[in-house]
């Protein structure tokens, strides 16, 4: 179950597969982040580092707090306590739109295609620093038309790469579920993020499209040297493309390590299957791509 990627030099070679282990070049460092809803602790992460330039898979049973952690990191929710740093700069309390502008962009478990806008408009929206987005300059097309052409050209390239170019001028609401996932990923790339956070990118995508989506995620790492964190339930997918896997249960990080080690990890097996031992998740063929919060 080894991936075809981290080729010659694996940056995480020799790193101990223990929860909260330090990594050579972390892009995101989380410290003591806690979030409770009433009496339930949804997220309670003591320490976690996300290595730059690799694909990190975030797994865990339903209700483990994966999406909540995503929401907290990207400013869509506020933790009770805790701090986190992105590229060395503290990110606690920074609103969602500024998190995105700093280079950490997330997608959503339930895709948010902007239905009554065309695929191209969805893409154009992703570009940052547009002069035409300011009130008064927007009234003078001469000021932003050139920038708009550049943005459109970049969007066309991405659409071609994600095989959505034939839908360019259709309303996004007419896309299929899988196409919406593709559009959301392509749109996130328009922001030019350093770190892409994908919340269940494969949920509800048909198997034929899954392969191409996987290819795109690997491409983010290999061709564009971006960092990827993704939540996924399908273990085959996780072990196929991750360089490192982090497992959460009941809000806490219970294990992390290279994919080869995580399937044998006793804590992971227990979290998925309960205290009585059964098969490791790696050998269960498909976990239904259900939803969790």
């Amino acid at each position: 179950m080894s991936s075809d990627a981290p080729a010659a030099t694996d940056p995480l070679e020799g790193i101990a597969p223990e929860p909260g282990v330090a990594k050579p070049d972390p892009i995101l460092t989380i410290d003591g982040v806690k979030r409770s809803f009433g009496g339930i602790t949804a997220v309670n992460v003591d320490h976690l580092e996300i290595q730059r330039g690799i694909i990190t898979g975030l797994i865990g049973p339903n209700g483990a707090g994966k999406t909540t952690l995503f929401n907290l990191m990207t400013g869509f929710d506020t933790p009770d306590t805790g701090t986190w740093r992105f590229n060395g700069a503290p990110l606690s309390g920074v609103p969602a739109h500024l998190v995105a502008r700093r280079g950490m962009v997330r997608t959503f478990q339930l895709t948010k295609a902007l239905s009554r806008m065309t695929v191209m408009e969805n893409m154009q929206l992703g570009a940052t620093g547009q002069l035409g987005e300011r009130f008064l300059p927007s009234l003078i097309p001469g000021l932003w038309r050139r920038q708009e052409r550049e943005i459109t050209a970049r969007a066309d390239e991405l659409l071609a790469r994600f095989k959505l170019d034939h839908m360019r001028d259709e309303y996004a609401g007419t896309l299929s579920g899988g196409q919406r996932k593709l559009l959301e990923m392509a749109r996130a790339l328009m922001v030019e993020p350093e770190l892409v956070m994908l919340d269940e990118p494969m949920a509800g995508v048909n198997p034929a499209l899954t392969q191409s989506l996987l290819g795109h995620i690997k491409g983010l790492r290999d061709d564009e040297s971006r960092t990827v964190v993704f939540v996924e339930h399908d273990m085959d997918v996780v072990f196929d493309i991750s360089d490192w896997v982090v497992c959460m249960a009941e809000g806490a990080i219970i294990a992390e390590g290279p994919p080869s080690s995580i399937g044998q990890n006793a804590a992971v097996i227990e979290a998925y299957l309960g205290a009585t031992h059964g098969q490791a998740p790696a050998r269960r063929r498909k976990q239904a791509g259900g939803t969790d919060q």
């Binding site: 995105a100 806008m117 929206l125 992703g126």
Partner: peptide, 12 residues
Amino acid sequence: EDEDAARSLGKN
């Protein structure tokens, strides 16, 4: 259409 989507793309 969806203000969370706009927010996730860096729009205030």
